[in-house]
């Protein structure tokens, strides 16, 4: 998992805090090792190696993540897709100098994308075409954040937060009873804050076009790729969403980015609080959590 991570817990004494933190961090590392696409021994690597071949047996946890990915796919009208990672083959954000792929290259990559080409059940998963890839990156981090919160609560922690690469899940309130105050990063001005949200026992996740991108011909091409078109999204600079779970906040934020203009009615339908920054920098908010944010 890339990005900066932070865990703060408040306990009666250091021993309890240390125990909770240690158990939580161990679990984050476990999820990282299990689902990283960079690790040869990960579940993800095993599934991807078998693409076009035999089905791979999976455990309950992997099946639950696949089911969650399937729901995100349906809810986004096919734009959110756990198999869209192969598009990074065409859109290489690390290449210097950067290059916009040709239509042919995009079409070739798109042929290996498609949730409907994934054969999966509670017991096994099979990618039906060689070259297909599954990537849990879009949900793994948020899932880990929710598990960290649960593990800490099981250790008796009543106050704390976890921030996994910008996806924040808070436990309870601050110790003095006031809500946790989470700043929302400005998508263009690094280290600046565009809004703020107060949270108790909830999560906020932000999806933005600023994590990995290149600019060409005056346009920004970001790493968030629409599985239907095979191209980067460009309607929003960032989408921040509040939800009871980081898993929900993260998937709603990503889907909002992918849906473009339709993000606002989508988020309203989820009854989610949100802060959207449009391509021109205009901020729009919905829900009580962000009401004060536009005053910035």
């Amino acid at each position: 998992m890339g990005g900066q991570h932070e865990l703060q817990v408040w306990a009666e004494d250091r021993l309890h805090a240390d125990r909770a933190a240690k158990a939580a961090i161990t679990d984050v590392l476990r999820i990282e090792a299990k689902y990283s696409r960079y690790r040869e021994d990960s579940v993800t690597a095993a599934i991807n190696r078998a693409a076009g071949g035999a089905a791979v047996a999976i455990d309950d946890e992997t099946a639950a993540l696949l089911r969650f990915g399937a729901r995100c796919h349906a809810l986004s009208g096919g734009r959110f897709d756990l198999t869209s990672g192969v598009l990074r083959g065409a859109w290489d954000f690390r290449r210097q100098p950067s290059r916009i792929p040709t239509d042919d290259e995009i079409a070739t990559a798109c042929a290996k994308v498609g949730w409907e080409r994934v054969e999966w059940s509670d017991r096994s998963v099979r990618l039906s075409r060689a070259g297909m890839e599954l990537d849990f990156g879009g949900i793994g981090k948020e899932y880990a954040a929710d598990r960290v919160a649960a593990i800490c609560m099981d250790h008796g922690i009543r106050h704390g937060f976890v921030n996994l690469g910008g996806d924040v899940r808070v436990i309870g309130t601050q110790v003095d009873g006031t809500p946790w105050r989470i700043g929302i990063r400005h998508p263009r001005r690094m280290r600046a804050v565009i809004g703020e949200v107060e949270l108790c026992d909830a999560a906020v996740a932000t999806s933005g076009d600023y994590e990995r991108y290149f600019e060409a011909d005056g346009r920004r091409y970001c790493h968030l790729l629409d599985a239907l078109t095979g191209r980067p999204v460009d309607h929003w600079q960032s989408a921040s969403v509040v939800a009871p779970l980081a898993t929900l906040a993260g998937s709603w934020a990503t889907i909002a980015m992918l849906l473009g203009e339709a993000a606002v009615p989508f988020l309203r339908a989820q009854h989610a609080d949100y802060l959207l920054v449009a391509a021109d920098g205009t901020v729009s908010c919905g829900g009580a959590a962000f009401e004060s944010a536009t005053n910035q």
């Binding site: 639950a64 969650f68 399937a70 729901r71 809810l75």
Partner: peptide, 19 residues
């Protein structure tokens, strides 16, 4: 669809405190 997403999120193991 959104209800099934929430249900799927809640079905993720270990996401709610056990005790």
């Amino acid at each position: 669809r959104s209800a099934t997403l929430i249900a799927a999120a809640l079905a993720l193991p270990g996401i709610l405190p056990a005790n």
